[in-house]
Amino acid sequence: MSLPPESREEAIARLNKSASDLEARTTPQISHEMAGQAAASQAWKIIADLFGGVFVGLAIGWAVDHFAGTSPVGIIGGVLLGFAISVWMAWRTAQRLMAEANKHGEPKSVPFDDDEDQGA
């Protein structure tokens, strides 16, 4: 069984339609709920970075104090160093998230955001 002959323009149009249909099927559709969950997980990661750095610095400072005998200096220095490192890690994560968000362009308006503008 042979296919009916078609012109070059018809073949290109058919292929473009097939490609756009395939792209529409394979592009993941992110719901508002999924976007909110992703944002919440990133926020928890930043919070964990902040607390984790301080606690690791505290533990290292305690260990220095315990073995070197420098009573409060190690703990104070460890907490300050851990805090500085945790702030740097949180800043780095936030910069990465902002670059990723800017790569995707302007966010679409959420339906309930439009209602707030009308009431003002």
Score class of each variant (00 low, 15 high):
Lys17Arg: 12
Lys17Asn: 13
Ala19Val: 15
Ala19Arg: 14
Ala19Ile: 15
Ser20Val: 12
Asp21His: 14
Leu22Asp: 01
Glu23Trp: 05
Ala24Ile: 14
Ala24Cys: 12
Arg25Tyr: 05
Thr26Tyr: 01
Thr26His: 02
Thr27Cys: 06
Thr27Val: 08
Pro28Tyr: 09
Gln29Cys: 08
Ile30Phe: 12
Ser31Thr: 15
Ser31Phe: 11
His32Gln: 13
Glu33Asn: 07
Met34Thr: 14
Met34Gly: 08
Ala35Cys: 06
Gly36Pro: 04
Gly36Trp: 02
Gln37Glu: 12
Ala38Leu: 06
Ala39Gly: 01
Ala39His: 02
Ser41Pro: 03
Gln42Lys: 08
Trp44Asp: 07
Trp44Lys: 12
Trp44Ile: 05
Trp44Gly: 03
Trp44Pro: 00
Ile47Trp: 06
Ile47Asp: 00
Asp49Gly: 11
Phe51Tyr: 06
Val56Cys: 11
Ile60Arg: 00
Gly61Asn: 03
Ala63Phe: 13
Ala63Gly: 09
Asp65Arg: 02
Ala68Tyr: 11
Ser71Ala: 08
Ser71Trp: 10
Ser71Val: 09
Pro72Met: 14
Val73His: 09
Gly74Val: 10
Gly77Met: 12
Leu81Val: 10
Leu81Trp: 04
Phe83Pro: 04
Phe83Thr: 15
Ala84Glu: 00
Ile85Leu: 14
Trp88Val: 02
Met89Val: 00
Ala90Met: 08
Trp91Tyr: 01
Trp91Ser: 02
Ala94Met: 05
Gln95Trp: 02
Arg96Trp: 03
Leu97Trp: 01
Leu97Asn: 05
Met98Lys: 10
Glu100Phe: 01
Asn102Glu: 00
Asn102Leu: 00
Lys103Asp: 10
Glu106Trp: 06
Glu106Pro: 10
